[in-house]
Simulated scan of single mutants.
Amino acid sequence: MSEAILKIQDVVKTFGGLHAVNGISFDLAEGEVMGLIGPNGAGKTTLFNVISGYYPPTRGQIQFKGRDIGGLPPYRLASIGIGRTFQVVKPFPGLSVLENVTIAGLCRHPKRKAAEKHAWKILEFTGLADQASKSAANLTLAGRKRLEISKALALEPSLLLLDEVVAGLNPTEADKTIELILKIKGFGISILIVEHIMRVIMSISDRVVVLNFGEQLALGKPADVAQDPGVIQAYLGEEAA
C-alpha cells in the first residue's frame, strides 16, 4: 500500500461527559478511497468535523502528510490541500455556478481571471459546464451536490472529504456520482467518504472503517467488513443477510 497521507491516532472528542468519538485510529493511503460508515449517532459526522478542523480533538493526533493538523481551522486545511463537501449543500445562492467555483478557486489562484479559468476546467470535469451561468439556487439536488464537489476540487486537494454526496439522489444520479468519485480517484486524490447507502460504499471503497457509539467497530476491505458479525448486528442488519 502507498504511504499514508492521513493518520488518525487514538482520536477522542468529548462534549461534556459524552464521548462522541472514542479512540479512533486508522491510516488513509495516498490514492485510497475509504468509506466511513455506522448507524445514526455512531460519531461519523463528529469525526469528520474533527478531521476537517471544525472541532479540535480532545485527545489524540491527526497527521496530514506527516504534519500535525489537529485543531487547525478549516481555511488553513483548505490551503494545504484538504477539501470538504457538506451533507447539507451550501452554495452561494445569489451567485452563478461558475462564480461559486471561482470563489473556491481563489484559494489556489488569487487572480480572478486565473481562478475563473480554473473553475471552467473543474466544471467541465464534473459535468456542470453547461450550467455555468445558472444561479446555484436553481440547480437540482443532484446539481447542487455536484457543485459541492466542484467547489472542493477547486482547492486542488490531495485529500477530499465527502459527506453524503449521494444521499437523496435517484439511482441514475447516484451512479453518475459514483462514476465521478472514481474519476477523482483516478487522479490520485485520496478520499474519505461518509455515506449511508451501502451499495455506494461497497462499490467505491478500497477499505471501510465502521463506527458504533463513538467506538471503532471494524476496519478492512468492504467484503470482509460486510461479513463481520458485529457490523451486521450494529449496522447492516437484514440488508447484509
Rank of each mutant, 00 (worst) to 15 (best):
K13P: 07
L219T: 10
I178W: 05
Q87G: 06
K13E: 05
K185G: 02
D130H: 14
I80C: 05
K44C: 07
L211I: 07
L162N: 03
T45R: 12
G35Q: 07
M202F: 10
K111C: 07
L139M: 05
G83K: 11
L123I: 01
F92Q: 02
L153H: 03
E238L: 04
K221G: 04
I8T: 11
P229H: 11
N40D: 13
R144W: 09
A241H: 09
L147H: 06
L169H: 11
H109Y: 15
I62N: 02
G186D: 12
K7I: 11
K44T: 08
A142N: 13
Q61V: 13
V97M: 01
K185L: 05
W120E: 14
L153K: 01
T45H: 12
E99Q: 13
F125Q: 09
G38R: 08
K117E: 14
A167L: 12
K121E: 15
V231C: 06
A129K: 14
L128C: 05
I197E: 06
D163G: 04
N40M: 09
L36C: 03
I204N: 02
T177E: 08
G35L: 03
G70Q: 00
E99K: 14
L77C: 12
D68L: 05
D224V: 08
S96G: 15
A104H: 03
P73D: 10
L77E: 10
Y54Q: 08
F213N: 07
E3Q: 14
Y75F: 15
A154R: 00
I178N: 06
V225R: 03
N138E: 15
G38F: 06
L141P: 05
M202Y: 04
F48E: 07
R146T: 15
R207F: 03
S96Q: 06
I51P: 05
D175A: 14
G23D: 02
P57R: 00
I189V: 15
E3D: 14
D10G: 05
L236G: 11
G168R: 01
L153V: 10
K121R: 14
V101M: 12
G220Q: 02
V11L: 12
P74L: 13
I24T: 04
V11C: 09
A132Q: 09
I181R: 00
H19V: 11
V21S: 09
F125I: 08
S203M: 10
G60M: 00
Q227R: 15
I193Y: 04
A132G: 12
G143Y: 01
V210T: 00
K113M: 10
N212V: 13
A167I: 09
A129N: 15
L160W: 02
R144L: 11
S52P: 05
E164R: 07
K65W: 00
C107H: 03
A115E: 07
L169K: 10
G60C: 04
D130M: 08
M202A: 07
